[in-house]
Structures are given as structure tokens and as C-alpha cells.
């Protein structure tokens, strides 16, 4: 527990100096996406890894943040800094309202219901052409700016996005080790026992669902303002699955694992350029292998592997 602040500090420093190593260039753009995806994966992990509630509709909340921000700024001419919290608030309210009936469902049913929700949101993005521009998307979304500093380059966006991402990660690490995080994990392990201990499981699940949606919405706003263009294709069912894959590959219930998963899945298509058609097969295969052989995810699986290898080597040395 005492090591947590240092771990975070080390991570934050690495994030700050990373651009020096890459000297700008195309990779900076990818690293902006790593930041946004990390935020999303951490948000989903709060729900899935801590509270044990699955969602296959998070791309929908991400998209709502992006579109609300986009519409309020590009169409209505608001200041982005005002649009962002307002979008988050709206998504938070909607998520809370949906959470009450949807979180009564468990396991497979919850998965299907959230999936359905995500698809409905996706269809709305496509069909409300007057608002969203439909399948061809919404363009002309302004960049964020502080005074005369406009976040319009990859390097500036990198620091902008990662400031938010680091904040979200810090909050989540704190939350995980606190009274609330403990209650969430208790609900995950045994809901009935948690309730007997006085934990209001129902309310807690709704709250964490809403929180997770709000963070996703913020990530969506950041996405809209850094990309200056959004279209429905980024917020479909496939992206919800991709987020799930990030969380599972990284490790359920680990904030840093979510970063690992997000980084891996964001960088993978870049590494596989040329073999682009293979990425869907690789996602599927990766997901399957992880669930079967490393259900704890990379954060737990890799140290485990090293330990086992060290033991093997020791065994060989003794023999």
C-alpha cells in the first residue's frame, strides 16, 4: 500500500519524458490514442474489475461524450471547456437512470443488455443526421485552448490528454485502496455478504456505473477536441469489445494493467501495418489465449511467468 504513491510518481515521470525519446513524429499521435484508450480502459475496469459488472456498451458513452462536445462547440459555438463538463454531466445522468434497471441483471444477461444499449446509441448517432451528420460524421470541432495556447499539435495534445489520463489513473488507484473500493470488491466476491455488512450494493453499483460512464464521456470529449472530427464508426460494438479486450488482457482490477492493455491494443495495429486484415484474428486469438492461460491478465501473468522461469532455471542449476 505504501508503495502506491511511488509507483504512480514513477509512471507519471515516464509519461512526461516519453516524448523526448520519440522526438515527436507519427508515434506521438498514436500515444495520444494510448492516453485516451487508457482512460477508457480504466473506466471500464472500475466497473468490471472492481465491481464485477460487465458492460459491452461503453463505446456508446464514449461516443456520447464526443458527440455532445462536438455538437455543443461546432454547431452551437460553445467554449469547449464548458461543453466538456456539461457532456459529462448529461452522460452521468443518463447512465444513472439506465443503471437502476440494467444492473438488476447479472452475468450474461447484463452483457447482452449493455450490448443492446450500445448498439441503440450507435444507431442514434447514425440516424440523427441533422445533429450528428450521420454516417459521414461531424467536422469542424474546435481544439481546446488555454489563453493563446491552442492544443492543435500531437505533442500538445499528448500532454493535454495524458494530464487527464494521469488524473483519472490517480483517482482510480486511490479509490481502489479505499473504503469504497473495498466495498466494491466485496460486492464482486459475495454480494449477499457485502449487504449483510451494511454495504448498499445496489446503490454502489449504480454509482460506479455512472462514474465509469462519466470518465468515458470525458475521454470522448477529449477525443473530439483532439481529432476535430467524429463519426459513428469509432463508437460501434467493435470498439466496446476492443475496450473489453484491453481490460482483460491488462488484468481485471488493475489500473496499470488497463494501461498495458490499452497500450498493447493501440500499438498492435501500428506494428501490424501491412498485415492489417489480420488484426481482428489476432484480437480474437489474444483474448482467447489470455482468458484460458492468463486469466489474471498481463500484470499478474508476466511476473508469474518470470517466477516460474526462475524456478525452472534454479532446478536446472541444481541438477
Amino acid at each position: 500500500m505504501k508503495r502506491e504513491p511511488f509507483k504512480f510518481l514513477l509512471f507519471a515521470v515516464l509519461v512526461l519524458v516519453a516524448p523526448l525519446a520519440f522526438k515527436g513524429g507519427y508515434l506521438m499521435n498514436v500515444l495520444v490514442f494510448v492516453g485516451i484508450n487508457t482512460m477508457l480502459a480504466v473506466a471500464l475496469n472500475l466497473l468490471l474489475g472492481y465491481a464485477g459488472q460487465i458492460s459491452l456498451g461503453h463505446a456508446g458513452f464514449f461516443g456520447m461524450g464526443a458527440y455532445l462536445s462536438g455538437i455543443l462547440t461546432a454547431t452551437c459555438g460553445w467554449n469547449p471547456w464548458l461543453a466538456m463538463p456539461l457532456a459529462a454531466l448529461a452522460v452521468g445522468i443518463l447512465a444513472t437512470l439506465i443503471a437502476f434497471p440494467i444492473l438488476k441483471l447479472k452475468g450474461h444477461y447484463l452483457a447482452m443488455a449493455t450490448l443492446g444499449l450500445g448498439i441503440i446509441i450507435y444507431i442514434v448517432f447514425n440516424e440523427t443526421v441533422d445533429l450528428t451528420g450521420g454516417p459521414s460524421g461531424l467536422s469542424g470541432i474546435p481544439n481546446l485552448a488555454v489563453g493563446s495556447l491552442v492544443f492543435d499539435s500531437d505533442i500538445k495534445n499528448y500532454y493535454l490528454v495524458w494530464t487527464f489520463t494521469l488524473a483519472v489513473m490517480l483517482f482510480s488507484v486511490n479509490l481502489a485502496g479505499s473504503r469504497i473500493g473495498r466495498a466494491l470488491r466485496a460486492v464482486h466476491d459475495s454480494e449477499v455478504a457485502a449487504r449483510v455488512m451494511g454495504v448498499n450494493a445496489r446503490l454502489l453499483k449504480v454509482q460506479v456505473f455512472a462514474l465509469s460512464a462519466v470518465i468515458s464521456s470525458l475521454a470522448g470529449s477529449l477525443y473530439a477536441h483532439t481529432m476535430t472530427f467524429v463519426s459513428p464508426a469509432s463508437f460501434g460494438f467493435n470498439f466496446s469489445i476492443e475496450l473489453l479486450t484491453m481490460v482483460v488482457i491488462g488484468g481485471l482490477g488493475s489500473v496499470y494493467g488497463s494501461f498495458l492493455g490499452a497500450a498493447l491494443l493501440t500499438l498492435l495495429p501500428e506494428l501490424l501495418r501491412g498485415a492489417q486484415d489480420y488484426d481482428i484474428v489476432i484480437y480474437g486469438g489474444l483474448l482467447m489465449v489470455m482468458v484460458m492461460f492468463m486469466p489474471g491478465g498481463l500484470v499478474r501473468g508476466i511476473p508469474d511467468l518470470f517466477r516460474r522461469m526462475a524456478r525452472l532455471r534454479e532446478g536446472a542449476g541444481n541438477a
Partner: peptide, 28 residues
Amino acid sequence: ELFGAMSVLENVMVGLHTKGSSGFLACS
């Protein structure tokens, strides 16, 4: 019905849930 993934101490700390009042914001 224990919280199997948590430590023994943490299990008892969940029992003290009603003795605390920090919410999401204060905790994070």
C-alpha cells in the same frame, strides 16, 4: 461467505463499512 479475493484484514474492514462515511469523491 467470505470475500475470497481479499485479505483477512480487509474482510473485517468491510465489516466496518457502516463506521465510515467517505464517499467516491473523498476516497478518490
